[in-house]
Write a protein that binds this DNA or RNA. Sequence first.
DNA 1: GCCAACGTTGGC
DNA 2: GCCAACGTTGGC
Length: 139
Amino acid sequence: MRYWLFKSEPSTWGWDDQLAKGDTGEEWDGVRNYQARNFMREMAVGDRGFFYHSQKERALVGIVEVIAEAHPDSTTEDDRWECVDIKAVKSLPRAVTLDEIKQDPRLADMVLVKNSRLSVQPVTPMEWQILCELAGAES
DNA sequence: GCCAACGTTGGC
DNA sequence: GCCAACGTTGGC
C-alpha cells in the first residue's frame, strides 16, 4: 500500500464535505496539473492518504482511502485530465499543522514542505508513521 | 492582500 | 523547440 496527500481549500471542498459523503466517497476532480495527475494514475484501491486544508488553516485534518482508480475527470471534456475517487476514513484526533511539520527535521523532505503548490503528493511510509503519531492516530 | 514560485501557453 | 508572458496557487 502506498500513501498520499490530498490538498484542498476548505472553502471549496473541505473535510466536512468529504465526511458528509461517507463511504460513497467523491471524485477528486478539478486537478489540472500533470504531476498531480500522474500521481493519481499510480494510485491503487486501498491506498491511504492525508486530507490537508490549505490557505488559512494549513493542517492535516483527516485520513482518506482510494476507492476507485484513475478515470476521466467528469468536470471536463478534456481527456488529458483524470482523477481517482476517495472516501473519508476518519478524522485525525489532532490536526497536524504545517508549522509543526516544518519544525520536525524528520519531515523536512516532505513534498508539502519542498513543493507547497503540488495538490496531490506522495508520502513515504516513514513520514506517514511520524505524522500519524503527531496526530494521535493509529498508522 | 502581497508576492514568490511554479506550471502552462503561445508566438516565433 | 525555446522562451517570454501570463495565470494560479498558497504561504506569509
